[in-house]
Design a binder for these strands. Structure first.
Lengths: 188, 188
DNA sequence: CTCTTTGATGTCAGTGACTGTCATCGACCC
DNA sequence: GGGTCGATGACAGTCACTGACATCAAAGAG
């Protein structure tokens, strides 16, 4: 055994979500999170850039998956169809994490600072998707607009999945949102 | 003349934009802004909730104008067409403020915290537009998706207007972005 | 015209997020 | 066995932001 317990980073993330959920984000100090994880405040900031980031550590993986799926769509697929590939892949990955996703989502929506952080993560995702589309030959501003649309569709699908009374298939909900979106854009 | 110089709020906003622009947002302290405006730090926080908000004081007016225009579109206009009314109105209002808009935009894009704040303002705009569409009889999730799309179109049009080498008509650029958007959604 | 009230500001002390710096000490390498 | 490395602790410091109270010109009440 090492000098310290392993998985400091994970322990911090777990402690943070618990405390934010129990007593609210603003009512939790970083010192308290660190203490629950058996560490000091200084160490928290060595693992996470700030008090919010501890909730968004996984967003990079999600973005990578989304981008990879869009990049791997058939070459001749239109922008919106390539994005649909990514939406499917992302929808699948959430399947067994609904309880965690609900807790995390409740914490985030309850606080304006955390909503801000979530929005910039989604903006980063949108930018990465636009970049992927450009590599596929889509020109601007079509690439950026399509990417923003895909993120909006994802958000709607995710929220419906989170809020559904009984467990439903997220992939299906995201597909429904995409269909609705196409109708709106067509003036339906 | 009163006990103090008038327009404290405006002086603070002006001083903040100058300092953020000259030396960067992070390198500027609130005390410095207050001093340049001839006030104290405490007074800054009486006028603006935090160091970022001083750059976003006008966003409420913009949102109100956008919403009012959409609400006033012909009753039988589809969601996307009603939103086009709002886009036109908003495009017009920027006409004589390009220099200011450019400086402000440069400051915001140079800093992550400020980009976060801008994103949440746009999310607020999107929510207000979705609400307006719902009042016009548009159902969910079409209302939210259409509102997000309109904001994306606005962002693209705005950026093109800001970045154009010579001064162009913002209304026209926003309309072009909307046309592009419709093509993308249709799979073009 | 005097008294009172009001509103914008100043002053000051305090909390908590975040950073820079140096010390500690088990693990690992040679 | 000695030296280096990496994760952590300890500690002092800056700055955003808040609460409480004091100040004083202006505006209104009488």
């Amino acid at each position: 055994m090492g000098r310290w317990e392993p998985n400091a980073r994970e322990r911090l993330a777990e402690a943070a979500l618990e405390l934010y959920s129990e007593r609210g984000y603003e009512q939790t100090t970083v010192a308290e999170i660190a203490k629950r994880a058996g560490l000091t405040e200084r160490t928290f900031f060595r693992h996470y850039a700030d008090k919010r980031e501890v909730l968004f550590a996984g967003s990079g993986d999600l973005q990578e998956l989304f981008v990879r799926s869009v990049a791997g769509a058939p070459e001749d697929a239109a922008a919106i169809d390539a994005l649909a590939f990514g939406l499917d892949a992302v929808g699948e990955v959430f399947a067994d994490r609904r309880a965690f996703a609900r807790t995390r989502h409740a914490v985030i929506t309850a606080n304006a600072e955390l909503r801000e952080r979530e929005l910039i993560k989604l903006a980063s995702l949108s930018a990465a998707l636009a970049d992927t589309l450009r590599r596929r030959g889509v020109t601007e501003p079509a690439a950026s607009l399509a990417a923003e649309a895909a993120v909006a569709v994802f958000k709607i699908g995710f929220e419906r999945w989170i809020e559904a009374a009984e467990e439903r298939d997220m992939v299906q909900l995201v597909r429904e949102a995409l269909t609705e979106f196409k109708a709106v854009a067509a003036g339906g």
